Amino acid sequence: MQTRTRDGLALLLAGALLGGGIAWLLGRRQESPPAPSALDAVPADALLVASLDLPALRASKAFASFLREEREIPGLGKVRDVCGFDPMAGLTEVVLAIPAAGEGGDFGLVAAGAVQSEALLTCASKVVEARGGQPVVTQIGSFHAVRDSSAEGRGEIAVRPGGPILLGGGAYLRAMIDAADGRAEPVRESAAHREVAREVGEAAARVTVVLTPEQRAELERELAPGGGARSPAASVVAAGAGVALGPEIAVRGVVLCDAEAPCAELGARLRAARDARAEDLATRLIGFGALLQRVEIAAEGKELHARVSLSAEEASALVARLASLRALERPAPAPRLPPALEGRGAPPPAGDGGAPSPDEVVAPRRAEPDGGAR
């Protein structure tokens, strides 16, 4: 009887273990693999890395309007009309990278999130054709890339199922693909970029810059031509800035120096520049003067920190003012004739002797010193 009881308990225990193991395996099978990060496709030797957390920005009253704008392809119209969908709609992360080495103007753009790879390749080919080019699709590693064979060197777009999306010049695009495919170190492995990012902290928008020894030497030569006194800016090794979103908008910047004394001197110069800019009339008129006065700048050993916080309402107002200024800087569209006058030629130019239109402003004639008029 005892033997049968022991055997029954053993079978029950074995069944429980087996059932639990099967349930664990089924659960593991249902887990989706982690989504690729845009930073995984940025080469480790990048000079500048700027990242945007799109869901956080979309949820912010201050910045959401920028992401809701209808995106257009210059000369072709709205992206949704050309492609049949908006590639930005499902994205969660965008990263801009500038290589430390390479021709001026080189850059890479990486986007991660819900990616429709086949639809994106089709859209890119349509855009190339609409501009009179010849689209060519090639496979590079695990990615498919589209380029215009009639315009070599003007950039390519590459994507793989599940993302990310890559945009860049030929050589740098391939460097990004190598990083994404694990054949080269991504920027996550860069100790310098990691240190700057750690000092900046969590942020919905963040930028980190790491100078190479060659760039620092060139900077020092430019700041002290002829072997003059060393500028404190020549001590800069790396820098970064970030914007954290919440009940308050926190902006933080950090500069890493190679020594404490020049870092302190640089801080003093930045505080003087802040005070001068805050008193500038143009800065005060657009509402940035008071904000600049609140920026705290302090040296802490070999680090220089700048911090400022503002309410969501203040941030919304400042962003709205920036948007208004941006709209003013855009060129006004060319005037069009009424439909009834289309095809009848352009109206006579101003100043041909005709009467001024109702909205024309006629400048007053100014007397010259000799009594004449201009």
Results as ranks from 00 to 15, higher is better:
V137K: 07
G353I: 09
A276M: 15
V82L: 02
P262M: 12
R6V: 14
A367S: 10
E189K: 09
D280L: 11
A234Q: 06
R4H: 12
A272P: 05
A239N: 08
I73E: 02
Q215N: 08
S125F: 12
E152P: 11
L13Y: 07
S357L: 13
S149W: 01
R183Q: 02
V254I: 13
G351N: 07
D280N: 11
G20V: 07
R307V: 15
A112C: 00
E313M: 10
T122C: 03
G133S: 04
G84A: 03
Q139T: 09
V308Y: 12
S37H: 13
V255Q: 02
E199R: 15
V127D: 01
A320N: 12
L54N: 00
R71P: 01
E360W: 09
T283D: 09
G289W: 15
A191D: 13
P262T: 10
G354S: 13
D275G: 03
E300S: 15
T92R: 11
P262R: 04
A124P: 00
E72W: 03
A340K: 08
I22T: 11
L67G: 09
V236I: 15
V319S: 12
L76C: 00
L291F: 15
V137A: 12
A38C: 00
G15I: 10
P161C: 04
S117P: 04
Q293G: 13
E329K: 13
T92D: 10
Q116K: 15
L219Y: 10
F143H: 04
V295C: 11
V115E: 02
E72S: 13
S231L: 10
A229D: 13
L91W: 03
M88R: 11
D86S: 03
D81G: 00
A145E: 07
G15K: 00
L337H: 00
D7K: 12
A367E: 13
P358R: 05
F288P: 05
P331K: 07
R6S: 06
A119K: 08
